[in-house]
């Protein structure tokens, strides 16, 4: 019990610190400050776009993962979950080496078309997708594996083609898993810092999302940093409470 309490304290104390030190009288003013509003807007745009891309790419990936077995599955699964355990800064460096001006894909893109990805909003979206998509894939794969396949079989027996089975039977059954996966993915994208600052840099209005703004402001305007941190905290808490055990607890 004592250890459990200590564990809980470790989580609660930093949060309490934020709440106690928050300049409550200035919250409205700090939130409306142009730099804060810009960072918030950019953060919402980037995290929503990253989640949309993760849905488009992640659902098929989860389908493939759930239908493979053995070594192939272990390898695919390890590759998919790698960004979850990789330090995000390392992820950022890896993204530079792939999409940077001298990167694997970035170099031909730059030489042939003059396209430069680093330091753009696109880079911020790519960084967030890279780091956050695994959360979506894992949630949906879990949903697929616990799916009762008899519904799909029945639909097939009734003459539905594979696309129709997927769209009319599988997807609706998967709705809770897709929803919780998308929300977790979005929350992770919203909080992304390391890969973004390494790969996309830090420029207000273009790549400076809320976590980056917090980091920069901490050194010059601590009040603004605390207010922005509170916003992120409130959003994350609301998401976790909203999801509750029934979705997070699913295998």
């Amino acid at each position: 019990m004592a250890l459990a309490g200590l564990g809980l304290l470790l989580f609660l104390l930093p949060l309490a610190g934020l709440v106690v030190r928050a300049p409550w009288g200035q919250v409205g003013q700090e939130l409306l400050a142009p730099q804060t509003a810009t960072a918030l807007g950019l953060s919402i745009f980037c995290s929503v776009t990253a989640t949309a891309i993760a849905l488009v790419l992640g659902i098929p990936l989860a389908l493939v993962l759930s239908r493979t077995t053995g070594t192939l599955r272990s390898v695919l699964r390890a590759l998919t979950t790698l960004p979850m355990v990789l330090p995000p800064v390392v992820g950022g460096v890896a993204l530079l080496l792939a999409f940077g001006r001298r990167g694997l894909i970035g170099a031909p893109l730059y030489q042939l078309f003059g396209v430069q990805i680093p330091f753009t909003t696109t880079a911020a979206v790519i960084a967030e997708t890279f780091v956050a998509m695994p959360f979506l894939v894992i949630a949906i794969e879990g949903g697929l594996r616990s799916l009762d396949q008899r519904y799909e079989e029945a639909a097939r027996a009734l003459g539905a083609n594979s696309w129709k089975v997927f769209a009319r039977v599988t997807l609706p059954l998967l709705r809770p898993a897709i929803f919780s996966g998308a929300v977790l993915c979005w929350a992770r994208a919203l909080g992304e810092f390391g890969a973004t600052i390494t790969f996309a840099g830090n420029l207000p209005g273009r790549t400076q999302t809320v976590p980056l703004a917090v980091y920069i402001a901490l050194e010059s305007k601590p009040e603004a940093a605390i207010v922005l941190s509170l916003v992120l905290l409130a959003v994350s808490l609301a998401i976790l409470i909203g999801l509750r055990d029934r979705w997070l607890g699913e295998p």
Binding site: P118, F119, I197, A200, G201, N202, L203, P204, T207, I216
Partner: peptide, 8 residues
């Protein structure tokens, strides 16, 4: 100058 990034 219009910088591409303002590094911390």
């Amino acid at each position: 100058v219009h910088p591409a990034s303002l590094e911390p």
